[in-house]
Simulated scan of single mutants.
Amino acid sequence: MPSVDRRAHTRLSTAEVAAREAFAYWREMICATFVRLAAEPVSDADFSGRIDHVPVGEVELSTVVACGQHVRRTRGLIAADTGEFLLASIQLRGEGRVGQDGRTAILTPGTMAFYDSTRPYTLHFDQPFHQLVVQVPKSELLLRDSRDLTARALGPGTPGGVVSSFFRSLAEGAGSGAAELTVLVPHAMGLLSAAASYAGRLAPARPAADAWARERVLGFLRRHLADPALDAETVARACHVSRRTVYRLAGPGGVAVQLRRLRLERARALLLAEPLRPVAGIAADCGFDSESGFYRAFRAATGQTPAEYRRSHGSGTAGQ
């Protein structure tokens, strides 16, 4: 049976076994990664699937790419488990359905839906799909009862759209080995609670409401970080809050510190993703008003120059 260490990055794939054993191995994969589940393929065609599981503190993020299937969480399987989790499926490609508590949510790209491991649920996919599954212990969340929030589709234009975007970015960063992302765990829990409260048509508790407002601020910073003139006043106007609120939501150091962190995060990703690109171009695209300023900030944050960072991560010396 495949093994998943919930504290470590784990990759599993049916490519590791013969085609005739693929779906049986897949059943073991999803049980090891999530909770005990029953599953059946929707066709007789060869099955393939893979899971990239990465933990960020108490948050478990699993990127799933697989062929069509029907998955069930039954009362018998629930009785055999001890953990209690709230899960959210964020659909990236393809379509699916989540059923629980008498409701069915249709999952289309950009949509998310919650389900609770302590009660029966179903997941169904007629065709190949790609989704991100967020799994957290129920004890860590700011909610009392999940019965009103499960199997409700939260799509673009709702808090679910913003929360989905955050967790996609978190999964990408965690998957690349950015251990410092654990500082975002309280924020992630608050955002998930805010989305769950919205799904249940409940008024978010103050910590959850603050997390939602903070993500609006950080989301604006991420989208506009290439603008070297971006400042707290601009963010406050765009997010319809006061400058004082912006500074409070941005956290220690205020907007300037958060913006520098996001710019350097983007710069690190671009240095590795585009190894032939000149550093000056990356600096400009990340909102630094001079190449020398970028070098100073990058070295202060990483202890390396951009060129040294590229070399130490296996990207060679091109584009320096």
Results as ranks from 00 to 15, higher is better:
Arg119Thr: 13
Met112Glu: 02
Arg214His: 01
Gly219Trp: 05
Ala195Arg: 06
Leu170Asn: 01
Arg7Trp: 05
Arg103Trp: 03
His130Val: 03
Ala105Gly: 12
Gly76Lys: 07
Pro120Gly: 01
Ala45Ile: 01
Ala195Asn: 10
Arg144Leu: 08
Leu61Asn: 09
Asp285Lys: 09
Leu202Glu: 14
Gln69Leu: 09
Leu107Glu: 08
Ala113Cys: 06
Leu271Gly: 11
Gly254Asp: 04
Arg237Glu: 10
Ala153Glu: 11
Gly303Lys: 02
Ile106Arg: 15
Tyr121Pro: 01
Phe85Cys: 00
Leu249His: 00
Ser146Asp: 13
Thr63Ser: 11
Pro207Gln: 07
Ala226Gln: 13
Val163His: 03
Tyr121Cys: 12
Leu12Pro: 05
Leu270Glu: 15
Ala18Arg: 14
Ala19Asp: 15
His124Asn: 05
Pro41Tyr: 06
Arg248Met: 08
Leu77Met: 13
Leu154Cys: 08
Leu12Val: 07
Asp285Arg: 10
Arg50Trp: 09
Ala8His: 07
Arg244Gln: 06
Ala8Asp: 07
Glu95Cys: 13
Thr108Gln: 06
Arg263Asn: 06
Asp231Lys: 00
Leu218Phe: 15
Asp101Lys: 02
Phe114Trp: 05
Thr104Pro: 04
Gly253Cys: 07
Pro128His: 08
Ser89Gly: 12
Gly303Phe: 10
Ala80Gln: 15
Leu202Ile: 12
Val54Gln: 14
Leu86Tyr: 06
Ser13Gly: 12
Gly49Ala: 10
Asp46Leu: 06
Ala229Glu: 14
Val257Phe: 09
Arg97Asn: 08
Gly177Gln: 01
Ala208Ser: 15
Ile106Pro: 02
Arg152Tyr: 03
Val246Ile: 10
Ser139Asp: 14
Leu192Phe: 15
Arg168Pro: 00
Asp5Phe: 00
Val257Gln: 14
Glu265Ala: 14
Arg147Glu: 06
Ala80Ser: 14
Pro109Lys: 00
Gln131Lys: 04
Gly175Ala: 09
Glu58Pro: 09
Leu143Ala: 12
Ala22Gly: 12
Ala213Lys: 13
Ala178His: 10
Cys239Ile: 13
Phe166Lys: 04
Ala151Gly: 04
Thr245Asn: 04
His240Phe: 07
Arg243Thr: 12
Val42Cys: 11
Thr14Arg: 03
Leu154Trp: 02
Ala153His: 00
Ser117Thr: 12
Leu271Cys: 03
Gly293Gln: 09
Glu172Asn: 01
Thr82Ile: 10
Thr63Leu: 14
Tyr295Leu: 13
Ala284Lys: 14
Ser292Glu: 14
Tyr309Val: 09
Ala267His: 03
Gln320Cys: 11
Phe129Ile: 10
Val255Thr: 15
Gly57Asp: 06
Leu86Met: 14
Arg75Glu: 15
